[in-house]
Amino acid sequence: MRGLILKDLYALRSFWKQFVFIYLFIACAFLTSAMESGSVSFVLTSMMIYSVVFGSTVLLSSMSIDEAVSFNRYALTTPLGIKKIVKAKFVLLLLSIAVGVFVSLLICGALSLLPAFKGEMIEWSEIIAAMALFLIGDSFMIAVMFKKGVEKARYIYIIIMFALAVFVFGCAKICEMKGISFRILDQLPDVFLSFFAAAVAALSMLMSYFVTLRIVRNKEW
């Protein structure tokens, strides 16, 4: 699998400058709004979410490169096997997200040292829940990417994210109309909410992995 990750890193070399530029641009935009609102929590949440989106972008680009030269068809004739080929894509996604999270923490850590932001509480459970939601979107996308190709996966990813947003917003609206209070959530410990969100995301990834394995096994390469 190391060979596949290396291949992706080499192949994406020409994209790294773009990725860094976009990342810095987004960071600057969030920082400006942080300066105005005086909240570092907002910047951190936005950057963490962007880290997941960044992971998806890296993954889509790598799959697009593979697709252009039918790399997976070749890879399946090597000793790698289906599992490693699929696993490598999940690892690439998680690695890219980890890099994004690390950079976000670094920037926001430095920011929180400034007197203007000192003492602000970070809502970790909200951050983790938001990231989990985007990860669920990614897990759908990976399976679609292997089944239908990158181009369709891009559109489906947008549709999934939009559907998730509508679902969350819709649920909140319905609860509000029916007079169902969210106070119960406030009473739950933050750790529980974070753990629950992370578990749902992990489960979604796991399911996506097995579905993708099945897709790859039955696909005509």
């Binding site: 291949k7 080499y10 192949a11 070399r13 593979d66 252009a68 030269v69 039918s70 070749y74």
Partner: peptide
């Protein structure tokens, strides 16, 4: 195969 299957940006 009939085409080179390595990503074009690889050295």
């Amino acid at each position: 195969f009939d085409e080179c299957n390595f990503p074009l940006s690889l050295k």
